[in-house]
Amino acid sequence: MKGLIKFYHPDETLEYHIRKCFCKVVFLNKKNTLVVEVESDDDLDHVEEDSYQNEYPQVSFSLEDFEIPVNTVQQLLGKSFQVPSFEEIETDSGEIEEVYYTNLNINDEEYLDTGDNELKFGKDENGNLKLIWIGYCEDFLTGNKEPLKFKISCSFTQDKLEIVE
């Protein structure tokens, strides 16, 4: 298993198993930016029949274009970043543009912003790069005004490619 995604709703905690995740540092427009994608599987074997999670079998998170002061993924070790959902940035032509960094995709249909994002990088027990991502999102379960806290814990492991001749 690569990790878990948890949503902490007052009625229940939803737990998703991670199917795939990746992290890279990309040189974009003369700056280094962070790109992270985390996608759950849609397996619901561990979920109670009356759980909210049955209505939302799959979620995915993405972060992109967030400027960071490192050049490589290895340099992320021990670093922590506060990432806003979006920022207003002045373009070279003097116009103000909204740049969105993070989003949550529900059931491959609905996109939600995430807020108060904190990303912490370290190593797992096998020496792989590990990410703890904590933040808040809109309550897509019941529509309450209080945002839902979420936590992602994942390890970026190298998948083995098998080539059959």
Rank of each mutant, 00 (worst) to 15 (best):
Y56M: 07
I68V: 15
S93R: 08
F66I: 00
V73I: 14
E39F: 05
S153Y: 03
E110W: 11
C154N: 09
D159H: 11
G143H: 04
C154R: 01
E125M: 07
Y136R: 13
E138D: 13
E125A: 11
Q58R: 14
V70L: 05
Y52C: 05
I68D: 00
I163L: 15
G127A: 06
S60A: 15
M1T: 13
P147M: 08
I132Q: 12
I18D: 01
K149C: 05
H46I: 07
K79Y: 03
L104I: 02
I89Q: 14
Y56V: 12
V47S: 06
V83L: 04
P147K: 14
G122W: 07
D116Q: 14
S155E: 10
L148K: 04
L161I: 15
V26G: 04
E39N: 08
E55S: 14
V70A: 06
L4W: 08
F7H: 03
L119H: 08
V38S: 04
T102R: 00
C21I: 02
D116G: 09
E97A: 07
I152P: 00
Y8R: 07
S62F: 10
Y101R: 00
S80T: 15
E146I: 07
F121K: 01
L34R: 01
Q58M: 13
N126H: 13
K120M: 11
L148F: 09
D92H: 03
N144L: 08
D113R: 02
D42S: 14
Y8S: 08
F7D: 03
E165T: 06
P10F: 11
D139W: 04
Q58L: 08
V164L: 14
E12A: 11
T91P: 01
L77Y: 13
L148D: 01
Q158F: 07
G78H: 08
V59Q: 05
N128K: 08
I132R: 10
E15I: 14
E64A: 13
V25T: 11
L112V: 03
S155L: 05
V35D: 12
L131Q: 05
I152N: 02
E88T: 13
L148P: 02
V25F: 04
D41G: 12
V83W: 00
I89H: 02
E12G: 08
Q158H: 11
E15P: 01
I96G: 01
S60R: 12
E162F: 14
L28P: 00
C21V: 10
L44V: 07
K6G: 02
T91S: 15
Y16P: 02
D11T: 10
V38Y: 05
S40Q: 05
V38W: 06
T142D: 12
E67N: 03
I89D: 00
F86Q: 04
K145Q: 12
N126W: 10
Q74D: 15
S93P: 00
V35S: 14
L141S: 07
D43T: 06
G78Q: 08
T157V: 14
F86L: 05
I18W: 03
L4I: 15
G127I: 08
I132W: 06
V70E: 01
T157L: 12
F7P: 03
L129Q: 12
H46G: 03
E67M: 04
L104F: 04
H17K: 14
Q58Y: 07
H9W: 09
E37Y: 05
